[in-house]
Amino acid sequence: MTSILLSSRAFVTDLITHTFFELMADGNKNRPVVIIVNSVKEGKQHPKMIALKNTLIQKDVLRPILFDVYHDDVAVLKQAAAIILNGGYEFFLLHSLKESGMGQVLRTLILKGVPTYGISAGAIVLGPDLGLYQAIYPEDNLFHDKDISGLHVTDIRIYPHYDQHFVQDPTLAEKISKWETATHNHVIRIANDEGVVISDNAARRFK
């Protein structure tokens, strides 16, 4: 049974935080919570990654570990009590997961039931593909990847930060709706303070 939490921002509300710990309630507290850092080129040195690790320490997580898919031992990932894919750039993250070969390992672990938290870009790559983002933000595909299929641990597509991005671009609603109509796919738009919890591909949205 898959146990997946998605949000725009990390632990931004008490309910999102509670839901994360509820997902991993039955896990071994001595096993690491692994944070995938490859959504940004700075990796472990990025302030966002360091801040997330420190947040987990403050929340009494015993072993938060920053994990680089290119350089770190896959055995660490396989021992995770929970996995977090942090925010950044979705195309960069997807490229890194596929190029390193770690994407398939990660998919297998998630489908086996390892609790997983996708934040922003991390939430996007857990879905079927990045087709919406290729249509709206083609310039973000820095490596010009042709294969933009996601990890596909869920059929659910997410657009994070929708409230913030709509203010910045009032045509966003029309762009997403046009893509939905053309592809016959549905996109869940979530605001910065919202989360989606997925259990066996059934989604429950909350804030």
Rank of each mutant, 00 (worst) to 15 (best):
F166V: 15
G118D: 02
H152M: 10
L132N: 01
E99F: 00
I16N: 11
P160H: 09
N30C: 11
A121I: 04
S96E: 14
H71K: 14
F67D: 01
L111A: 06
I124H: 02
Q79L: 11
A25G: 10
D72F: 08
E90F: 10
H71V: 03
R107P: 00
R204Y: 12
E90W: 08
F206W: 10
D163F: 06
K44G: 04
T183W: 14
G43Q: 03
A121P: 01
R9T: 11
A121T: 04
M102Q: 13
S39P: 02
L23Q: 12
K207H: 12
H71L: 12
N185I: 09
Y117R: 06
L66H: 03
L172A: 12
I50T: 05
S199C: 07
N54F: 13
K146W: 00
H95D: 12
L52R: 12
D68N: 10
R9Y: 07
D140R: 00
I156E: 03
L151C: 07
E42G: 04
G103Y: 02
V74D: 09
L151F: 09
D147N: 14
S7I: 06
S177F: 13
L94D: 05
D145Y: 03
G118W: 04
E42D: 11
L132T: 01
G131P: 06
G43D: 05
I84L: 08
S7P: 05
I57K: 15
D163P: 01
D26T: 13
N185D: 13
A75V: 09
T17Y: 07
G195K: 03
S96V: 08
P170V: 13
P128F: 12
V125H: 07
P115F: 09
T17M: 11
I50M: 04
H95T: 11
G150T: 08
T171G: 09
A10M: 07
Y70S: 12
K44I: 04
L106V: 04
T55R: 15
H186K: 14
Q45N: 12
V197E: 05
I198S: 01
R189G: 03
A173S: 15
A80L: 06
K44W: 02
A80S: 09
R204A: 14
A81D: 05
A51K: 14
I198K: 01
F11M: 14
N141Q: 01
